[in-house]
Amino acid sequence: MPSYTTEALVLQRRNAGENDRILTLLTRQHGKLSASAKGASKAGSRLSGATEPFTRVRLLLATGRSTDIISQCEIVRSYPVLRTDIGRIARASYWCELLASLLHDRDATETEAVFDLAAAALNLLEREAVWPDAPLHGAELRLLEITGYAPVLHQCAICGASLSTEDASGFSPALGGTLCHTHAPQEPGALVLTAQCIALLQTIETAGASTLCSIAPPQGVRNAVNRALREFVRYHLGRSMGSADFLESIRGTEA
């Protein structure tokens, strides 16, 4: 049975049978894939800690007929800070579910860039941020760009006219982004976004780590941006993610 080594992030885990686990992994070389961790649910298994979500691991995988099998596993980083705060764990769950939902199995497109982005986002979620959603949205917009779903934020998604933030007044998930004053009222599914919200989205799109951790918009702007991106992702996935609903309920208690 041929085998290969790779670095991976554990995105999701489900139990299979009495003792096994099936993992959804994001690997550096092969993109997203499923792998079986035999006996990982047994008490005392050396695989149990390394097969938890939000863990960065180095793996030796044996190629299986349907699912590859983990032969050896070593933890590179376990992101312990993520497990100390309900807001952090909710955002990490959202990020991992988004990666698992948006990426296709073994899609070799920009695997290294996606892996580095995924790991960097988990690092950033461990850091203190004035608005904890800013680092998450930064990574989210970058992932949408890599996968070809990036929202239009500088033009009207209908007429293509270049927008200054004063001209923009709507955001349509179905049409792919911001709308100008003329077209926003004509689009029934469009969300009303203030110029401040659109400016914030534009900033998040290009901001570096330190900016993302220090952005401090007013609560109303935060809520509107959270909603716009949530609706955008829901539209493109065709379903609502469980972790998005949970994160929304946690945000309600943070405000």
Partner: peptide
């Protein structure tokens, strides 16, 4: 670490947890 366990065979996540 579990009672009667062996540090040599503990995985890193368990040791990190034990330290914390």
């Amino acid at each position: 670490l579990p009672a009667g366990g062996d540090m040599e065979y503990a995985d890193q996540a368990t040791l990190i947890s034990a330290l914390q």
